[in-house]
Design a protein around this nucleic acid. Sequence first.
DNA 1: AAGAATCCCAACCGCAAGTTG
DNA 2: GCAACTTGCGGTTGGGATTCT
Length: 326
Amino acid sequence: MGRSPCCDEKGLKKGPWTPEEDQKLTEYIQKHGYGSWRALPKLAGLNRCGKSCRLRWTNYLRPDIKRGKFTQEEEQTILRLHSVLGNKWSAIAKHLPGRTDNEIKNFWNTHLKKKLIQMGFDPMTHQPRTDFFAALPQLIALANLRQLAEQRPWDDHAAKLQAEAVQAAKLQYLQSLLQSAASIATSPSSSSINTIPSDLEQIGLLSPPQMSSLSSLPSPRLLESISGLDIVTGQVPDIQMPSSFFEQHISMDANHNADYTAKGSVEGDNGTPKTLLLSENSLPPLTDLPISNLGDACSISSCDGSNSQFPSWPVLFDEPFLSEFE
DNA sequence: AAGAATCCCAACCGCAAGTTG
DNA sequence: GCAACTTGCGGTTGGGATTCT
């Protein structure tokens, strides 16, 4: 069961395929099929190893390959299957006709993984991240919302509902933040802190100057003093959700998502919430607001309760979330 | 306008399982 | 049963394309 020697053979071409090579390979396979990949290059008149030919064919030249962007449905399928199968790209690809494992893998690594991280989910377990910095994108997004809110007048009625929705999300993130801070403070061996740089880099959250300012983040003790959190015991103070929040249906379906407007709220000078509507394009570039991704999170799971195959994906506004505040 | 930074994806690498003689 | 060979798979990388400064 040794390693394949085919790619080690000298004199074989590597690198990008030329149109001529593509044509030779395609014509040969259409005529003769691909009985033996090892023998194929010689027979087809190609100065390539069989492995390279196989890859070129399966990932690019195959006639049934679907090109172009992944659809929302495909994206949801990948997320769902990945939560069950993990990095079994070939297994996932079997459920997506016309897509190759390589394509899916690339799509995952460049888009979906980041998306999950930005939303505060662990891309491997699909569970909410509990470490301190997982909540940072949300908090920073909210900080951005606050800045913008102070510059814009709002319609009172619609504003109030949106305010409460975002207030709810805000409170949840604050709570998880405090819990995480507690766990970091109480377990010096926690690995959470070690994942910070890669996470932040991966999601493009902080610029280098911002990274360097991490050292000035509040200490657990400071968090304790401002939040009432008992760092030693990890006890988190109860955070009350606005009751009317749960009476509102937050539409998260794909259509809604298409013309999505980020919603935020902050407290005005007199303590009443101000609310803001942000067009997607007006959002600050600091990060893709996780809120804007909630639609995806919801749509891939069970907003309509119909999808039971994906239990490990706790929708932010689903039962676990609700029960936490009951 | 130009250089730097980032994104994206085709292709490669190397391991492991399956097949063959 | 064993070793050589083949194939399939997942991780990683190089460099072109795009975006940012």
